[in-house]
């Protein structure tokens, strides 16, 4: 996979912003609902991410990982605190964030190629030349991306003709087609078998190394986090806070060999211990919260 042909670049290249932080959360608090029935999902979360970081987020279920992704993507406003993306208040400027969820949600009336080219129809400046370039440059890029994820020749198929794993590969292509500066992945490989998953780790790593976007990956697979990330954030149980910020400096490109090393096993064990700890803490405070909620 490492000797794959480089992707054709898109015609317009933007100068990368000279920033030391692309994402910044300042004392962010997110509360869902109002009054007694409200739920504090994130509490005083602060976080700084440099351009090109590959951040993996792990933590107990329901601790607010997806909420952080939505904050950064501008899909959700913080109740308190600030979220900055590329130096500006989130949502102030549309920067075309690539996003992929566990559910591939490809549109059934479009072919696979049309599906993955959809972002080019929306994100500027590609949207302006979409009509002109869709049969040439854009199409070539779509085909190259499809080939990279192992879907060469499937561009003209319809989504229902593909298996779950193939749809997830296409989903990844759709998130990457417009070479986003920010890539948000919410358990993208959660529903796949172990072998497909490990194959896609390598594919994703190659694509990451090529263009160096800033990536947020939410995952429940600690090996996945350790394999892909340059930085792992461990979150506490709800209300979520970052309790551990761990740099991962295994040499890249990482291979399956990397996962057999002692240091790799030690890291995943350590992460497992931290999450276990976070869940224990939740169990300890749970009774108090429960009585509050039943009183409401």
């Amino acid at each position: 996979m490492t000797d794959a042909v480089p992707l054709p670049a898109l015609p317009v290249t933007e100068t990368p912003p000279l920033l030391d932080r692309i994402v910044q959360l300042e004392n962010v608090r997110v509360r869902f609902g109002t009054g007694d029935a409200s739920l504090l999902a994130l509490d005083r979360t602060s976080l700084t991410v440099r351009p090109g970081d590959f951040v993996a987020m792990v933590g107990p279920s329901g601790c607010g990982k997806s909420t952080i992704l939505k904050l950064v993507a501008g899909l959700l406003r913080p109740t308190e605190g600030n979220v900055f993306v590329a130096g500006r208040e989130v949502g102030a400027e549309r920067i075309g964030i690539g996003m992929a969820f566990q559910n591939p949600t490809l549109l059934p009336w479009l072919s696979i190629r049309q599906n993955i080219m959809l972002p080019l129809k929306i994100v500027k400046p590609y949207a302006d030349t979409y009509r002109r370039d869709r049969e040439t440059v854009f199409r070539d890029r779509a085909e190259a991306l499809l080939a990279r994820v192992g879907l060469a020749g499937f561009g003209d198929r319809k989504p229902w003709e593909l298996s779950g794993g193939m749809l997830q590969r296409a989903n990844l292509c759709r998130a990457l087609i417009h070479a986003p500066k920010l890539l948000m992945l919410d358990e993208p490989f959660g529903a796949l078998d172990q072998f497909t998953r490990e194959e896609l780790w390598s594919v994703l790593q190659d694509l990451y190394l090529e263009t160096r976007p800033t990536v947020f990956l939410v995952t429940h697979d600690l090996r996945e986090a350790a394999f892909l990330a340059s930085r792992i954030l461990v979150m506490s149980a709800r209300p979520g806070r970052v309790v551990e910020d761990r740099a991962v400096d295994f040499a890249r490109p990482r291979t399956l060999e990397t996962t057999f090393a002692d240091a790799f096993g030690a890291l995943t064990n350590e992460l497992r211990r931290l999450i276990f700890q976070a869940r224990q803490d939740q169990a300890a405070i749970a009774p108090a919260t429960a009585t509050q909620e039943t009183a409401a």
Binding site: K70, A100, A175
Partner: peptide, 11 residues
């Protein structure tokens, strides 16, 4: 999810 993907793109 589809709506989120599109909104994140700035649609």
């Amino acid at each position: 999810e589809m709506e989120d993907v599109l909104k994140a793109l700035g649609a």
